[in-house]
Amino acid sequence: MFGAADSGVPNRTHPDGRTFLDILWRQARFATSAHFVRAVRPLAGRRLAENLLTRTEHDRVLSAANEADLRR
């Protein structure tokens, strides 16, 4: 979940013990929504390559990131 934009994708734990959101939020504060999406995109790609996201889940995560309102 990114703000009110919920992808519906589980935040699975990588074998190293970190979740997608653990890694993403360590990079926070994002100056703009574009910076946020630029952080989500490669992370989602790595999770897809590691079989921690399906293609559909990957696409849903990217869609939610693009819809996220980070101004709150």
Rank of each mutant, 00 (worst) to 15 (best):
V9H: 02
R55T: 15
R71H: 08
R46C: 04
R29Y: 06
G17V: 15
M1Y: 15
T13S: 09
E57F: 13
L53F: 15
F20R: 03
A49C: 06
F36M: 04
H14P: 13
G17L: 11
L62Q: 00
T54A: 01
R72T: 15
P10C: 01
L48E: 02
D22N: 08
T13I: 11
F30E: 03
I23Y: 01
D59W: 03
N51P: 06
R41H: 12
V37E: 01
T32G: 02
P15R: 05
A49T: 10
R12F: 08
R72G: 15
T19G: 01
T13W: 04
A64V: 11
T54K: 05
W25C: 00
G17H: 09
T13M: 04
F20Q: 00
L21D: 07
E50Q: 08
R46K: 06
H14V: 14
I23L: 02
A64I: 10
D69M: 14
L21Y: 10
T19L: 01
D59G: 07
A65T: 08
L53A: 10
T19I: 07
L24W: 00
R72Q: 15
A4F: 07
T56N: 05
L43T: 09
R47Y: 14
A4H: 12
R41W: 08
L53P: 07
D22E: 04
